[in-house]
């Protein structure tokens, strides 16, 4: 069972939901796939078990063999190689690691070396097995690191995924293969606009989903109306609560600040199970 937590708009409460859900359902694993700005560890406070470097293959050119024919830069779809007279320039940050340049080089002058794009940390906090990725600052591409985090996950364990914001490649990498996705939003024009985009994305990916409305009393009824029209269940409403916002600011999980919510998160989980 894989449940991912996503949202179009940032800052709506993905991490709040993912961490509190993980803390309320017994033995499970939490994967923080927002590798650009991971925050789940702040609330889960896992004991670090191990960490490892995550890398991507990038081309390295053998000057002795290279004939500077230009084939590599011609086939590279990502402009990661340029041949200028007797020089092959490699722009490592642009490389997607597809291998086209080395496989298609007519004189076998290109081999691949590993380049670190980030690290992965694996830990444990009580019942929660925890994995997150931390992308190296100045790296452009997060999907390979997200994929690595997901590959590291234990099989056959209830899995909660904290996804990055948005609706493009990093989110897709994080949520694909989920059994269910929860979209967290807030009842504001921004929240609605970005929810609609996230819904369109999940429909393309064919992942079943529902909505959790955070700060449910701050805005208007448009998200409710949209969900009713589109037949999207709203599984939970979390009202704006200054005390909870303050606990969040200190890195204290919701269910610790207000233990009575633990049951509500457990119910939320049971509702999801029933829907899958």
């Amino acid at each position: 069972m894989i449940i991912s937590i996503a949202s179009g708009k940032g800052g709506t409460g993905k991490t709040t939901l993912a961490t509190n859900l993980a803390l309320s359902i017994g033995k499970c694993q939490l994967l923080d796939c927002d590798v650009e700005e991971p925050n789940s560890h702040i609330f889960i406070k896992p004991r670090l078990i191990r960490s490892r470097s995550v890398s991507l293959p990038v081309p390295k050119v053998d000057d002795k063999k290279c004939t500077y024919c230009g084939k590599c830069s011609e086939v590279c779809q990502f402009s990661a190689l340029a041949v200028i007279r007797k020089n092959v320039l490699v722009f490592q940050e642009l490389c997607h690691g597809c291998g086209a340049c080395s496989i298609l080089c007519p004189v076998d002058a290109i081999w691949e070396v590993e380049r670190e794009i980030g690290v992965m940390e694996i830990g444990q906090a009580g019942d929660v097995h925890f994995i997150h990725g931390l992308m190296r600052i100045s790296e452009a591409m997060s999907p390979p690191l997200i994929k690595a985090v997901k590959n590291e996950a234990e099989k056959d364990m209830v899995t909660i995924i904290d996804a990055p914001p948005g609706t493009s490649c990093p989110v897709i990498e994080a949520v694909k293969d989920s059994d269910f996705c929860v979209l967290v939003t807030e009842p504001t024009p921004f929240g609605l606009n970005d929810l609609v985009l996230a819904v369109e994305m999940l429909r393309i990916l064919e992942i079943p989903f529902a909505v959790v409305l955070n700060r449910s009393d701050v805005g208007d009824d448009k998200v409710d109306e949209y969900c009713e029209k589109e037949d999207i269940p709203i599984l939970m409403k979390i009202p704006m609560d200054r005390e909870l916002a303050e606990a969040y600011s200190e890195g204290i999980p919701f269910v610790e600040a207000k233990p009575e919510w633990k049951e509500k998160f457990a119910d939320l989980y049971n509702n999801i199970i029933r829907m899958v």
Partner: peptide, 28 residues
């Protein structure tokens, strides 16, 4: 955009300056 990846790098390329907006939380 949020984050620090490719769209952010592209959005700050050529910028004279950036203004980072944050919030007073551990995550922020």
């Amino acid at each position: 955009p949020p984050g620090i990846g490719c769209p952010v790098i592209s959005a700050i390329t050529g910028a004279s300056l950036v203004l980072a907006v944050t919030e007073p939380t551990v995550s922020g």
